[in-house]
Design a protein around this nucleic acid. Structure first.
Lengths: 415, 415
DNA sequence: TTTTTAAGTTTAGGTATTAAACAAAGTATT
DNA sequence: AATACTTTGTTTAATACCTAAACTTAAAAA
């Protein structure tokens, strides 16, 4: 057996045991630092059972004693905590983007311990070379002698493309030219730890949702993450679980029709949200308006093609460029049409605006909330907390890491 | 104790036991009639455990022996089955509509054993009188000496309005002028059996979904029920569970914007689907077209107000009236805009068209499928089976009855 | 008849939980 | 200081439920 398996998973345990372990771990995280008695009182289990399970958790490097604290009139209680940092167990979440591979080492609390970013080599990225790169980063993030590598819970990977989260097979990743690539199997073979592969928007959603609402008890109410960028995607989380759908394409927010008879979309439909509020559409709209109203804005050599990147457009918005602001406000109106529908339909408690466009702040948020007030039903709208994503590029890694960590206290009802 | 409690519920049992009971009941329903050995092989449990649990199930009037069958080389196996009909346990589902109270007695297989419809008294319906009526129908459906009443699993009630399915409290029911009416508590006090109260569209959705896909294993993929009538509502079922949302309003399909800037809706927004494709809108549109194109159609005394009920409009559609057909086709286009968005967003495996408008058949279905092909993404659309509801007015009762029955084999992970 | 085979039950042993007794380590009281 | 409570954590005995294996029952095969 390899050294990675030194800290071995409990292979068998009854369902009863799993449920009680999960209960204890959950309340421990919530009340930490906390003594066994309190865990017993809080979970409703007997002190004997709590002791027995805590012993197990200590053996597995999940929990440690912090020594006795002040007496409460009798024997001093021994405080327990979930082991923080490298000394406890860890997970690593990777984000694969067009140009970078970013790995984030996360501890048992879901906190970032270390991160590392590599530029991807130019040209076609062979899946096998990605596996090499990931293995390299795993070692760099932990160090071959690091306790973290011996207690590595698992490795996650977020890929921009269509992924079957169960098999971990990348069905299509246009940006990399991959089709039916069994990345999970390849990585597990190499790394000898459980691997989770999923779409990166969904992973980011998990990260942001956990960060915005990191109760140990996942809320049963829907929470929506919206990714506004070149494309417009989303992820819906219900009872802490991502909605995948029958073909793993759930969350296609960008192809909701908001302007019937409007501009043709790449998907064949007309008036899709993405076709009117995706970043490319906003850039064109900006150029169009500028040409019509203030040609002076387009400072360029005469005869030069008016070229503008999305990034520079977003900078202009942030800098307070009024024309760019108008374009964003127009987009907000369109986004609100789709979002109001989804709010009415799913009745979420939280909507997180992510993706590059979300980072312009009130330029988007103000017109969006106004339009929502006009278009969404009052009752569902009143339940929604609308926030801007805050984890930026780290969301994917954090989401995957936290997901792997939370699987430690998950109850598996076999079939 | 009252006589209703003669067949008493198992009050305590470990989680392990619950899981195994559920497993056995599920496979029993699937393979019935079947012997203990086969259950053991199929579930992976030992024959001893199967015997012990089957004994319990027999005691609880859920399962019975059918006698031995042909030997397979040794002792003859004793076949078991879930008790059908009144001899086994039953549940009753009620539908409360504007004018009627319909009760449906359902057996352990979810099959209809008996049903009864009462006209509601004219005028305001006191919640307390509804409780009386329901108690009366329960007795009429079972008879005071009927075995069914002694094995009644529970009673369900579908109400047109906003219901908290957990507390069973009717928050708002405009048609009856109720607000915060704790119907569940009132009924449980009277009937002394568990009561489930929910919105009737959601209950109908459960009924149709179970009927269309009655595997004992609920599919993890979303399934959508659409109710097309005066209003337009829907219910989304994921992993066999209804999506409720943060304020129990999930499923508001009618207020998805399909025509921005279109006609004003009662909700304050403009261009809601309900405002252009709800039955009242279709009737007005029909009258408008008729007035413009074929005034002769509107056969009425001169000076009479052109009055047309929804029911008569639907009859016209069914009779092949071309003008009415055009109106439905127009509506289908609008419905498709919203439905395509929801299909893209939730990626369902099944969409069931319910409500009065759905019953016109291909007049709706043909233009709808055509429009969907234009507007929905190919991959999600390819996963959808689009069907018309088939249970009619019985859907609500069947859905509630089947839900109550399925709760018998449900595992409850306390908090 | 006797042997073999299969279905169902009983029994012995293991895991996991709880209540209750017990040990450890403090505070409060005399 | 000695004694009496208190509280925490552990050990112990009883219980629930599972499994493997032995056993009983009842048929087919030899």
């Amino acid at each position: 057996m390899t050294q990675e398996q030194a800290t071995h998973q409990k292979i068998s345990s009854t369902i009863q045991r799993q449920v009680n372990r999960a209960k204890i771990l959950r309340t421990l995280k919530m009340l930490q630092p906390v003594a066994r008695v309190d865990l017993a009182r809080e979970t409703g289990l007997s002190r004997a059972t709590v002791s027995s399970i805590v012993d197990e958790l200590v053996m597995e490097s999940l929990v440690e004693e912090m020594g006795a604290t002040a007496s409460r009139g009798g024997r001093r209680p021994i405080l327990l905590r979930v082991i923080p940092g490298r000394e406890g167990r860890c997970a690593i979440g990777f984000e694969l983007s067009r140009n970078n591979l970013t790995g984030i080492l996360v501890d048992l609390h879901g906190r970032v311990i270390a991160s590392h970013r590599d530029l991807l080599p130019a040209g076609y990225l062979e899946p096998a070379s990605l596996v090499d790169l990931i293995q390299e980063q795993v070692l760099r993030l932990t160090g071959p002698e690091d306790p973290a590598i011996r207690g590595l819970v698992g490795v996650g990977l977020g890929v921009p493309g269509l992924v079957d989260p169960v098999t971990g097979c990348v069905q299509v990743a246009v940006q990399f030219g991959w089709q039916n690539t069994p990345l999970k199997d390849m990585l597990e073979k190499r790394l000898k730890v459980p691997v989770k592969v999923m779409n990166s928007v969904k992973a980011a959603a998990l990260g942001e949702v956990i960060y915005n609402h990191h109760s140990p008890e996942p809320s049963p109410n829907p929470r929506l993450y919206l990714s506004l960028g070149q494309g417009i995607g989303s992820a819906l989380i219900i009872e802490g679980k991502l909605l995948s759908g029958a073909s793993n394409t759930a969350g296609e927010f960008g192809h909701i029709t908001v302007a019937p008879g409007g501009p043709l979309c790449t998907c064949g439909n007309s008036g899709c949200l993405e076709a009117v509020a995706g970043l490319p559409a906003l850039v064109s709209r900006y150029l169009e308006l500028a040409r019509m109203e203030e040609p002076s804005r387009l400072t360029m050599a005469p005869g030069e093609f008016p070229y503008l990147t999305s990034a520079r457009f977003l900078e202009a918005v942030a800098a307070g460029d009024s024309l760019a602001g108008r374009v964003v406000a127009e987009a907000a109106e369109q986004i609100a049409i789709a979002l109001a529908g989804v709010i009415n339909f799913t009745n979420p408690e939280l909507v997180i605006l992510g993706g590059p466009l979300s980072q312009v702040g009130s330029a988007l948020l103000d017109p969006l909330t106004q339009a929502l007030r006009r278009r969404a039903l009052p009752l569902p709208l009143s339940q929604v907390r609308l926030v801007t994503a805050s984890l930026g590029a780290n969301a994917v890694g954090i989401g995957l890491g936290a997901t792997l960590i939370s699987q430690l206290s998950e109850v598996v009802l076999s079939r």
